[in-house]
Computed example of a mutant assay.
Amino acid sequence: MKIVNLQDRRDLVPAIAAAHVQAFGTLLPDWTVAQAVAELQAQQRDAIPCSWLAMDAGDWSGSVSLLHDDHEQIRGWSPWLASLYVKPEARGCGVGAALVEHAIAQAAVFGVPELYLYCEAPRVAWYRTLGWRVHAQLQLGPLAITVMAVETGHR
């Protein structure tokens, strides 16, 4: 597995956008694939917002993003690790953990001292194994979420 910047594989943007809308669309019911494509195309290489892909045998197996804002109802913290997605056939193989570690390291390179994410209760324990801690618990639309935080090592 190799992790590459999305800017190096812009040809994959439509497929990634479709996967993101399918996976995360319940939080943003009016979000369309066209909007997701536009958001991914507007990302940068060496600054937030940006995304990376896990590549294996020439195809992408997962993605992760760093965003300034991840949801309009939780603007109090920034930046966010967002859109961690691993294709079903690649789950359980370390792809997600590798993408999270890569995003944390890149956040440190960008000068970010602390990074946030939000998830539902079943994912909290997994993120804790990667060094994240519970920061807050909130209601986000229909979902009860946990905001988690991690120090990137940047001082």
Rank of each mutant, 00 (worst) to 15 (best):
S65Q: 14
G141N: 08
A34S: 10
D30G: 15
R128M: 08
W132D: 01
N5K: 06
Q7E: 10
H154I: 08
V4H: 05
V100H: 00
G62P: 01
V112Q: 03
A57H: 13
L67T: 13
Y116P: 00
P49G: 12
D56G: 14
V147S: 03
P142W: 07
A125H: 06
L81M: 09
A105Y: 00
A107I: 04
A42R: 02
L138Y: 10
T152S: 02
S65E: 10
A42C: 05
W52F: 13
V21H: 01
A125C: 07
E114K: 06
G25F: 08
A149C: 09
A125T: 08
T146A: 13
I145T: 04
L130E: 03
L12K: 03
V100G: 00
R45F: 12
V13P: 01
L67N: 11
E89Q: 10
Q44G: 07
E120A: 12
V13T: 08
C50W: 04
M55V: 15
G94P: 01
Q41M: 12
A42N: 05
H102T: 08
R133F: 06
H102P: 00
A107E: 02
E101Q: 10
S65A: 15
A54D: 04
E151W: 08
L27H: 13
I104E: 01
Y127L: 01
K2T: 15
D8R: 04
L115M: 04
L143A: 14
P88L: 11
V37F: 03
F24C: 06
H20D: 11
K87Y: 04
A144G: 09
G92Y: 08
L40R: 00
A19H: 03
E89G: 06
I48G: 07
G153S: 04
W60Y: 13
R128K: 09
D59H: 13
F24Y: 12
P113W: 05
N5P: 02
L115D: 04
H68K: 13
